[in-house]
Design a protein around this nucleic acid. Structure first.
Lengths: 196, 196
DNA sequence: GCACTAAACGGACCATGGTCCGTTTCTATT
DNA sequence: AATAGAAACGGACCATGGTCCGTTTAGTGC
């Protein structure tokens, strides 16, 4: 069951049919992705599979990118939960530096795993507060715990930037870096930033 | 620019009409950008303005992104020239650290200036060796000169990553950071990476 | 249950990126 | 200059993201 997002008090509740359709559309999109890949997620196809009109898809998700971002969000939620209340070292309980490194490694894997979906979500994926900003916030917090001086907000962003999909893809595909190399190098980066 | 990319010896030279058309298309695209913004750069519009068929545009540039990347390349060339043979501190003659910082600052400004074009170039812009790889290479060289130990290739990428357009845009538009703050914070990042 | 309103729906329609293939133009060769 | 063949051209055509607006439906007050 979909997590009921907190709506502002003056926001009218979502109509029953609207909710049903949104759910159906998300399911349809997910099924198409699982079955035929992200490329097969055509707005017409999703609409047809969900048994609704095309206009409805756009009404619910604004754009293809919006739809992709919505699908992505469901995965992202698990990641956030793991950080907030999962087992250490990703979750609370481990020392900050361990948590930071664990977060980086998990992020690399997750980004590579969902790379086609993330690319398809485009700016909708990056810009949505829901996804990016939570992580950036958490990294800021960890840097704070580690006593890092300076512009912590920027440093957090800088630490996460090389893990973004386009850059990760370039490293892997063009420079032919192995995963292990990337994680090691990122650890080193994190240490330089924290200890510098 | 563009550095004349090395063509293999067996590559046939470009035909006269082809060269003329490519030039006309680039001019047309540039004119549309200057006059009406990147959004007005429609493949049909470019073709019409250049007085050629649409198919020709695609033959020359593969895709809209390819066309954008080609336009971008002309600006990028000046940047490369400034690094290779311009006045210090960006060009040769200044100490490596000064050159590095100058490069970062110049990069930030350039990326913000061309951001709509860069976004429009999408992956074609990032992936093309011509643009990105030259700079990454140069940063690697500078890090080498500075005696940085570790995975210099990754560190160079990490240093440049937060200056990429999507991230820069997020900082400026969503986090509302001022330009001066970003450059200062980036300087700090560079020092941490070099001295760490 | 009935009427009423705002929200949601659906699918025809449009704009634009990208493909295809028959026609034209260049250039090397004789 | 004539010729042949490769390369380039052009624009009709297709696929798909996105819009629009007349129609349907879920809630609400009676």
């Amino acid at each position: 069951m979909p997590i009921r997002l907190p709506l502002a008090d003056d926001e009218p509740a979502e109509r029953r049919d609207a909710a049903r359709n949104r759910d159906a559309l998300l399911r349809a999109a997910q099924a198409l992705i699982d079955h035929c890949g992200v490329g097969a997620v055509t707005m017409d196809a999703v609409a047809a599979r969900a048994g609704v009109g095309k206009g409805t898809v756009f009404r619910r998700f604004e754009s293809r990118e919006g739809l992709m971002a919505a699908v992505l969000n469901r995965s992202e939620t698990g990641f956030q939960a793991a950080i907030l209340s999962g087992p250490p070292p990703l979750g609370p309980g481990a020392p900050p530096m361990e948590r930071l490194l664990a977060l980086g490694h998990a992020r690399i894997e997750l980004n590579l795993l969902h790379r086609s979906l993330i690319s398809a979500a485009g700016r909708a994926g990056t810009r949505s507060y829901a996804a990016m900003s939570f992580i950036a916030m958490h990294v800021r917090y960890l840097l704070g715990e580690l006593g890092v001086r300076g512009d912590v907000a920027f440093l957090a962003t800088a630490l996460l930037a090389p893990l973004e999909v386009p850059i990760l893809e370039q490293q892997v595909e063009i420079e032919e870096m192995r995963l292990a190399r990337i994680t090691e190098a990122w650890d080193d980066l994190a240490r330089r930033i924290v200890e510098g």
